[in-house]
Design a protein around this nucleic acid. Structure first.
Lengths: 242, 242
DNA sequence: TAATGAAGCATTTTCGAAATTAAGCGGATA
DNA sequence: TATCCGCTTAATTTCGAAAATGCTTCATTA
């Protein structure tokens, strides 16, 4: 079963991996941008090999795209990609939830409530702009993970996790341009109650709506960022800033 | 959309990747075996960095497992893993087929028939032991890919491809111990006809049965190879032979 | 003028040695 | 005798230079 939090003893490549992932999600490294080794080497203060290692893993996560013998670029964003991502996420997430409800025990329910509480309290403390907080994002991820962890399918969980992180980048992009904040706490609470109440059909429906509405909001608030066609995207691939 | 055949201009790491993948699938590199850099370096005649690159990618494919700062091992096999793999494959493959039927055009149908014909002809030429042929495996993969390619979901196709390759290792393991050969050609033909006939329900049912029966056969013929518990597996992790 | 090709430059890819870390071993102590 | 600590050995991880590759520019030719 894949652990969500990374083990303590971090290798240097793993550290760079985490920082780069954060930078890609935060759009410090812009979608479509060419990743030149020389620039990255200064940015993260590591060697070529270490960078290559980190980049390889990011390719696996779908956050970086490798073109053989032509280097790496930050995975582009597009409405097509977002829609496809959403489609697959709905499929996977529904299956995870249904299975988790079937297999979860009392400890699982307790963990969900704990995760929700942690997220909810921080949200209350942060006020309106909770959405921008890195820490809240983490707890939000933990909450969603807690819902599905009891499905006990390593493969399903791994696939789900990758998709979730790719989607996270889109969420983050839209959150910066947002003026009104959706009442996510209510949605989350409803999902939690449906899941703990073992109402499979309702849980699936709610999680699907949750995902789709998030996507709709991303397109609404950040759609202008990635509506660009192929040639424009290349133009935007300016050198990254250190 | 992810291309199935690799591009021509191969980097050396990509070449090693392919050879290692083939060796893992063929069990030249045994499940659970520790992958020592020194041995691999001789085996594939490349340097540390190049190996690391290839290994990283294999980790992404789930054929190799990395333990931070403790090196790499060939992904172990087990009945639990096979069952989970089967479960997820059924989910994904059904969705792919259903979607492909909805979106596929005439050219897609033609491509399926072509792929089937190529596979079928080679099978006839090879006779009873077609199952052991590397070339037939390739065409078999192409056929199954042709069925789903029209779903037009890059994410779904990528996930499917990874799972298919992991399953391929199990199929290959069982084929070496098999005495009787399933009449796969009939099954494949039925699937093809259902798909081209745009019968979604039937196609899903057939592909599910195809996958499940293959799994059942793997357990029947090769189950003894990986029923071993944790400590035994470690014992089997002998040094790879050059 | 447009097309072709060769040379130079920028960038990636590969290499093997050096540094770092984990594992195995033996001796000392409770 | 069992346990713990430090040493030795073996393996991985990191490094930056060297080789290989792709891209661009500029001269040459039809």
């Amino acid at each position: 079963m894949p652990d969500r939090p990374k083990p303590a003893g971090e290798t240097r490549a793993a550290d760079v991996l985490h920082r780069m992932r954060a930078d890609i999600i935060a759009c410090t490294l812009k979608p479509g941008a060419k990743l030149r080794f020389e620039s990255l080497r200064e940015m993260y203060a590591v060697s070529f090999s270490t960078l290559r290692e980190a980049l390889s893993r990011l390719v696996a996560e779908g956050l970086v795209v490798a073109e053989d013998q032509r280097g790496f670029i930050v995975a582009p964003v597009s409405i097509d990609d977002l829609n496809d991502l959403t489609y697959v996420r709905v499929l996977i997430e529904r299956e995870c939830i249904a299975l988790a409800i079937k297999r979860g025990d009392d400890a699982w329910e307790a963990a969900i409530m704990g995760a929700f509480h942690r997220m909810d309290r921080l949200q209350a403390r942060l006020g309106l702009k909770y959405y921008l907080s890195e820490e809240w994002s983490k707890l939000h991820g933990d909450f969603h993970f807690s819902l599905v962890v009891a499905c006990q399918s390593p493969n399903l969980l791994e696939i789900r996790q990758k998709l979730f992180e790719r989607a996270h980048r889109y969420r983050r992009m839209s959150s910066q341009f947002r003026t009104k904040w959706r009442a996510k706490d209510v949605e989350h609470k409803m999902i939690m109650e449906a899941v703990i109440g073992r109402d499979t059909a309702k849980s699936e429906k709610l999680i699907e709506r949750h995902i789709r509405e998030t996507t709709a909001n991303v397109i609404k608030f950040a759609g202008h960022l990635f509506a660009a066609p192929e040639e424009e995207r290349r133009g935007r691939a300016e050198r990254i800033s250190a």
